[in-house]
Simulated scan of single mutants.
Amino acid sequence: MSSPTMADPAPSLPLEIPDKPILSTAEVVSLAEVAVRRAEKFGTLIDTLESGVNKRAADAAESLDRAGFQSKDQQAAADKAAAIARREVVTNSSDARWAHLKELNAAADSLATTAQLWASPVTVLARAGLGTQERSNFQQRLEGSGIVDLRNAALLAVATDNKIMGAAIVAILDRMPARSRPFSARDLADKLVGE
């Protein structure tokens, strides 16, 4: 007789918890506009720095051209001047470039956090009333309900625009095997919170 084996523990899923606050739609639009302006400003800074390097290289080549040096010597002088100028620019502009990048990264982090929280209508609906007594009551009442009761509850939630009831229904649907669900959580979420 073989001894009973312990069941394998359920695999844990990595949960990335964002450290940025949730943004409203208006804040997302505003942050996106600010990020675009910052990116344009950063691009202008890089272009300005690059044009300064190119100008010094062109000046070195032009100086040797006026002195009658061969084109290969002019090119070598231009390359050397560009390398020196680029090192100086990198050293002198490091703080400014990093400041721009930090601003852009902060905006990207806030938008990424918001994107996770608003990833789909189901995600948004699933948060409605989380931790409230009202949602707990709906879930307790609907737990073990049949297909007809769940459909009627979903119709009532949509008709009364009751997102907390809808969230409770989504939680119940989530525990059901996919083939047993009387309707999709996505359909319910689309009707209660939209796209």
Rank of each mutant, 00 (worst) to 15 (best):
L111G: 10
A128W: 00
R87T: 11
A58F: 10
D109V: 07
G52R: 13
V122G: 03
N105R: 15
W118S: 11
V36N: 13
V90F: 04
R38D: 14
N92D: 15
H100T: 03
A67P: 00
G131F: 11
A77H: 08
V89F: 13
S120Q: 07
D79F: 02
S93L: 06
L104N: 10
S71D: 02
A83P: 00
K55V: 12
A99Q: 14
A77W: 08
Q70L: 09
T132Q: 08
R37K: 14
A108I: 07
W98K: 13
A78D: 01
V122D: 06
A128K: 04
N92E: 15
H100L: 08
S63A: 14
Q74D: 07
T91C: 03
A119H: 06
A128T: 01
W98S: 13
A78N: 05
A85G: 11
A85D: 05
A61C: 03
P121I: 07
A128E: 15
T48K: 03
E40K: 08
S63L: 02
D73A: 13
Q70F: 05
L49P: 00
D47G: 12
V122C: 03
A107G: 11
E40A: 13
D65R: 14
A67F: 03
G43W: 00
A99F: 09
G52I: 00
T132C: 03
G131V: 06
E88R: 02
S63H: 04
V89Y: 12
A77C: 05
A67Q: 09
A108V: 08
D65A: 12
V53M: 02
T123C: 08
D95H: 06
A39T: 13
I46C: 09
A67M: 11
A119Q: 09
L130W: 10
D79Y: 01
A112N: 11
K41W: 05
I84Y: 06
A82D: 01
R66D: 08
L125I: 05
E40Q: 14
R66H: 05
A61P: 00
A99M: 10
R56A: 07
N54W: 01
A58I: 01
D65Y: 04
S120N: 12
D95N: 11
L101N: 10
T91A: 14
